[in-house]
Design a protein around this nucleic acid. Sequence first.
DNA 1: GCCATTCGTTGTACGATGTACAACGATCGC
DNA 2: GCGATCGTTGTACATCGTACAACGAATGGC
Lengths: 238, 238
Amino acid sequence: MAKPRATRRPAADKPALTRERVIAAALAEIDERGADAFNLRNLAERLGVYPTAVYWHVPNKNAILAEVVATVFRDVAPRRRSGEDWRDYLRKLFQRYRASMRRHPNVAPLVGAHLVGNLRIDFDFVEGVLGALADADLAGARLVAGYNAVVAALIGFVVQEFSPIPATEAQEWQSAVQQRLLTVDPQTHPVLAANLPLLANQAFVLRWQNGSEAPLDASYRSFIEQVIAGIEHLRAQG
Amino acid sequence: MAKPRATRRPAADKPALTRERVIAAALAEIDERGADAFNLRNLAERLGVYPTAVYWHVPNKNAILAEVVATVFRDVAPRRRSGEDWRDYLRKLFQRYRASMRRHPNVAPLVGAHLVGNLRIDFDFVEGVLGALADADLAGARLVAGYNAVVAALIGFVVQEFSPIPATEAQEWQSAVQQRLLTVDPQTHPVLAANLPLLANQAFVLRWQNGSEAPLDASYRSFIEQVIAGIEHLRAQG
DNA sequence: GCCATTCGTTGTACGATGTACAACGATCGC
DNA sequence: GCGATCGTTGTACATCGTACAACGAATGGC
């Protein structure tokens, strides 16, 4: 649907509804209210339009969400500089991906949930990763394995870091986790008990805030190096 | 809500509604229809009960979903055998986690989406990972970094591997991806183009089926070794 | 410069869904 | 036996996605 060959309404009073404006407004809605609370009526209200008007530009809600995700991660993949070390390229890619997510943390649950919308077949992204790994002398099955590892790691860490707590349960969740942590039994869980202060709110599963409020910067930096070490291991083996 | 000190209805004709039966039925519903299509009316129908009856045993829909996820991953963490190499322990944990997900692939989107429900503070799981890493001589900040890396990797890969395509769009999606792959330009995306046959349906973002239909066994096996190599790298550095 | 056509929006409507709430009956402790 | 409590029935409502039918405004052909 929608073949807007030219702006129809030159300048009535509203700035003319376009697919791009719909997506941009949707992203703004999600940023402000969260992905769960996102709905078409609020979106329409923001656009100053009836709810069903947006259906002219977009087939359905899911398409909007997919488009929003694609927008957030447009141009994450850095251009490959000739002669650039593949390690540096991966470092840059990981940092940029996380930076994009940090700008719009509320889209995190949308990214993790579906195959659809996972970087919707962004060939530049794929080629970026593959090119780096090819430079690391990976080919064939090892190239595939390396690629899947990088993508899984990249998306996995960041999605989990920034996935938000459902707003309605935020306070209860916070104190529930904190209380739970006080009940750790040093007999049955010695390492956890011994490292509680270090882990509390700084480790997956043991957090009560997400990456927006309690970013895992140090862990992520280390994670990138671990991923690279994993690739080094992969290329070293037969 | 719900302090069933004893089975109230001994054996009228229905087998008595309990929290456990509600969760089990919810899991069955999700297995059959997918997480998106899950709703309380179908759940109630399966239980032979009015929709609002389940509210006696469970506060709301989200709680059901969280409980379902917890059920699927109950006892994923293997017991730590004394003297067992930490590498072997991690290998086992990774394989068991994936096996659990494979049994109930439709819960994958629930796992990825929210902090809540992420292995809902299963201390045994946490202690398992921490214990293995402590055996690898990690402590302090490096222990935290290793733990976060392992959890992110573990959940990230498997969630993405098994996250299902929304059923309604399955066929269109499949052919859309396949067609898209035929348009790859070897000039701008040489590595991708050269490896298309290897990557098609076997690599993230380039798939049209999920892990239930096209499992990434080889990639996952390699991934586990890469994670371990990452940990080795972490312990080696200052 | 008029008019049929197409585009984009306004309105209306409906079915699905989560869940609040008030009966109401069955069961159990006494 | 009887009152309190537990668990279920039944009703109701607000919210949401989206189908569908007008309807008006810009446009291009004449």
